[in-house]
Design a protein around this nucleic acid. Structure first.
Length: 800
DNA sequence: ACAAACGTTCGT
DNA sequence: ACGAACGTTTGT
């Protein structure tokens, strides 16, 4: 049973935070999982939560307790972030142990905090041993997941498979025996419980496992000897488990995408933030504090006691090994940052790092996310996405956006959340800053990874540094990474989480912001990261698939209001003034600025500076670019003449619920068709000019409401883009059929561009201006250039 | 005790 | 690699 526990404690499954937007949302009733629910008329076999309700910051259950002292998280009892961090329960992604940083003998500073998930880190012990997620130390050579992903966050890992139990249940209910049952369970039918072959193994494992494993060698990884074989089996298993988790996430993400349509109501993006709830866990804290020592987890039922004993023993051993002690903290240890920072900072002059407390703690930061993700993606797989490409292309430097609050509609809401997120993050976030920063950095770097973590392989050594760097100054990190220190990291993800694969990544960044050209490198990614706060995203471990990653928009975290100088004083120009200056810079230039110093990096991520993102004519749209876009949550996105794939576009659109303007002109219909499965409730401007192979039928698919009525949730009836007021269809091979579609599905159209549409005739004009047309009054601008029309047709209502 | 839903395993 | 199924864990 508890096999899993081998590690630290039992592995605890995480539960929803209940605070993030996703958690607060209602079931869509349309996704696969909802449809499976009995409440929606399904069989109830899948037992999965609605795709739109996937918690972005799953927390440790209230029953989770410290492996060392057996008590729950107590962060609520203290005020400072540091203390909160020390008293909160942290779950190691590698060994799965859940412990109070303050109960570690080793310096807690050595741990690498994973911002993406609350209360998640790579414990000092594992970190020290080099176990990274990936590499693991485990020695494993084992399989681990392959990717290394492992590292990332896992929610829980252990497979508890153990339990066997067949009790059984429900089955009866199940009617049917689904296949599985049949097979395994056959014997009993009713009972079905499936599986569990493991019993044998597992049992042994469990029973023994723990012992053996734990005791034996590993101790889960973690602890015990990691050195030794840390995980040998256990670790491996765990990893695999991790992997699975990750995969799940991916799936979810994918599903989300698919589902999205329906979801119109809420958007994914928004979620982002909120989650952090960092505390959530904390919330949990409250939980029991009881259990003194017995670490044993609740869960185990059966042999629990015995196990417990064993566990205790193991625990002790492990602790001993680890050097845990009941209370020591060692915060002190931090040190490191310096190096890293040094580089970057020097460059700029920023110095900020310490803001927090002396030792930087925070590592994390989410900062990286975007990058991380990206990198992660790449590194890991690339499958889905197109290969990273060099951004180089020509691209116009976009002008910077400025719109003040633009994003508003969509975003605002979301963003606001973002802030929450922070809060949530608090843990992370807060800590971050202080303590965590360092850690974060790691994370971030790594974080980016969580997923990355694993990836981070390279990191290990660097981790801290990187992390810190990243964490602390996201942006800078990039630079640093790329440039300086980094090299090392860079290679893998190390450094990068950010960039990930070196070249690409850099490219990515640049792409986003600047586009390829010159700056090749660095910047971009991180910039977004800056935000640091957003913790949790469930990021999919996997690198590649974009889908999985949930890229959260940068939280609006509190930013420094002044620019600290080396002298210790602050620059005379306050943030507001600097922002005014930044508003006059192009995206590319902003990217450059972000590399200057941590403070600038953060300032340059101000949403107001990125309301418009122009990636037109970029040869390739890379994962980093995509996540960079998501993080910035632009109000206006120009993807014209890019080779963005359908999958990428779908991924993007589903995460930009606040997008007001979208330009996909010149893109192939095969990609643009992604919009047929998306929900863009806020979209006001859609530019479909010169979309390759676009026909009337395609436009119908695009504008018509989702077939699913259900999905429609109401709005849809008006059509997927019913709120679009400006539509550009220049240069398309459309016929008069189109006009009927417009009249029917775009009732609020005020500007229409039909220039260079050779097959449009007077009929279109008549349709648009007929008494029955809602457009006869609303349409204020109509461009029919490049076409011959009769004066008469234009005469009537249509304003021209 | 129950509903929800997490994490794992199985079948394709 | 995916998606489905389902045991088990969590929170009420």
């Amino acid at each position: 049973m508890s096999g899993s526990k081998a590690l630290g404690g039992a592995r605890r499954r995480r539960t929803r935070c209940r605070r993030c937007q996703a958690c607060m949302r209602t079931e869509c009733g349309e996704c696969h999982f909802c449809k499976d629910m009995k409440k929606f008329g399904g069989p109830g076999r899948m037992k999965q939560s609605c795709l739109l309700r996937q918690c972005t910051a799953p927390v440790l259950p209230h029953t989770a307790v410290c492996f060392s002292c057996g008590e729950a998280g107590k962060e609520d009892t203290v005020d400072t972030e540091e203390e909160k961090f020390s008293l909160s329960l942290m779950e190691c992604t590698i060994c799965n142990e859940i412990i109070h940083p303050s109960c570690l003998k080793m310096g807690k500073a050595e741990g690498i905090i994973n911002d993406e998930i609350p209360n998640c880190w790579e414990c000092p012990k594992c970190h020290k041993e080099g176990k990274t997620s990936k590499d693991g130390g485990d020695g494993s050579g084992k399989r681990r997941m392959d990717n290394g992903e492992v590292g990332r966050w896992k929610l829980t890992d252990d497979p508890p498979p153990t339990k066997k139990k067949p009790p059984s249940l429900e089955d009866g209910g199940r009617q049917d025996g689904h296949k599985r049952k049949k097979e395994k369970e056959l014997p009993q039918d009713s009972g079905p419980k499936k599986k569990k072959q493991k019993p044998n193994v597992s049992e042994t494992a469990e029973s023994n496992g723990p012992n053996s494993s734990t005791g034996g060698s590993q101790g889960s990884g973690g602890g015990s000897n990691s050195t030794q074989s840390p995980t040998s089996t256990a670790s491996q298993d765990q990893r695999s488990h991790h992997r699975e988790k990750l995969e799940r996430f991916k799936r979810m993400c994918q599903l989300l995408e698919r589902v999205r349509e329906s979801s119109s109501s809420s958007s994914s993006s928004s979620e982002s933030d909120s989650e952090s709830d960092s505390d959530s866990p904390s919330g949990s804290d409250g939980r029991r504090g009881s259990e003194p020592s017995s670490p044993v987890p609740v869960a185990y039922s059966n042999s629990a006691r015995e196990r417990n004993r064993e566990r205790d023993r193991e625990r002790d051993r492990r602790l001993a090994e680890l050097g845990f002690s009941a209370s020591e903290d060692s915060e002190g240890s931090v040190k490191e940052e310096e190096e890293e920072d040094a580089v970057e900072e020097q460059v700029v002059g920023d110095k900020p790092r310490r803001r927090g407390e002396g030792p930087p703690r925070g590592r994390k930061g989410l900062t990286t996310d975007g990058n991380d993700e990206e990198s992660g993606e790449r590194s890991r797989k690339s499958t889905p996405l197109p290969p990273p490409s060099p951004l180089s292309s020509t691209q116009p430097p976009p002008s910077s956006g400025h719109g003040p609050s633009p994003g508003s509609e969509g975003f605002s809401g979301k963003r606001s959340n973002g802030s929450e997120t922070r809060n949530g993050r608090t843990r992370a976030g807060v800590r971050d800053r202080e303590t965590q920063e360092k850690e974060n950095a790691n994370n971030s770097g790594g974080s980016v990874a969580n997923h990355r973590h694993g990836t981070g392989k390279g990191n290990k050594g660097n981790k801290i540094r990187n992390n810190k760097q990243t964490g602390s100054q996201p942006t800078s990190r990039n630079s640093s990474n790329s440039s300086a220190s980094t090299a090392t990291t860079t290679s893998n993800g190390g450094g990068g989480g950010l960039l990930g694969p070196g070249s690409n990544s850099s490219g990515g960044m640049s792409a986003l912001a600047a586009s390829p050209r010159s700056q090749p490198s660095r910047m971009a990614p991180r910039s977004q990261m800056m935000k640091r706060s957003p913790p949790a995203v469930p990021s999919p471990p996997r690198p590649v698939q974009m889908e999985r990653h949930l890229v959260r928009p940068p939280p609006a975290c509190p930013e420094p209001h002044c620019l600290p100088l080396d002298s210790g004083s602050s620059h005379v120009m306050p943030r507001d003034v600097w922002l005014r200056v930044f508003q006059h810079l192009s995206q590319r230039e902003l990217c450059v600025c972000m590399r200057v110093c941590r403070t600038w990096s953060r300032w340059c991520c101000d949403k107001r500076l990125w309301t418009q993102i122009d990636l037109s004519r970029q040869r390739s749209i890379t994962p980093p670019m995509l996540s960079g876009i998501i993080r910035r949550q632009p109000v206006s996105l120009n993807l014209s003449y890019t080779n963005i794939s359908k999958k990428q576009l779908m991924w993007l659109i589903n995460r930009l619920q606040g997008l007001l303007e979208l330009n996909v002109s010149g893109c192939p219909w095969s990609s643009v068709s992604a919009l047929c499965q998306a929900a863009c409730p806020c979209l006001r401007l859609l530019d479909l000019s010169r979309v390759e192979d676009m026909k009337d039928s395609h436009l119908r698919e695009l504008l018509a409401p989702p077939t699913d009525t259900r999905t429609a949730h109401g709005e849809s009836r008006g059509g997927r883009f019913q709120n679009v007021t400006e539509l550009r269809l220049a240069g398309l091979d459309l016929t008069d059929v189109t006009s009927r579609l417009l009249v029917r599905y775009l009732p609020h159209l005020t500007k229409l561009d039909l220039s260079q549409c050779g097959n449009i005739t007077d009929q279109t004009i008549h349709t648009l201006t007929s008494p029955m047309s809602p457009l006869k009054d609303s349409l204020a601008h109509l461009n029919l250039a490049g076409k011959d029309y009769t004066v008469d047709s234009l005469a009537p209502n249509t304003p021209r």
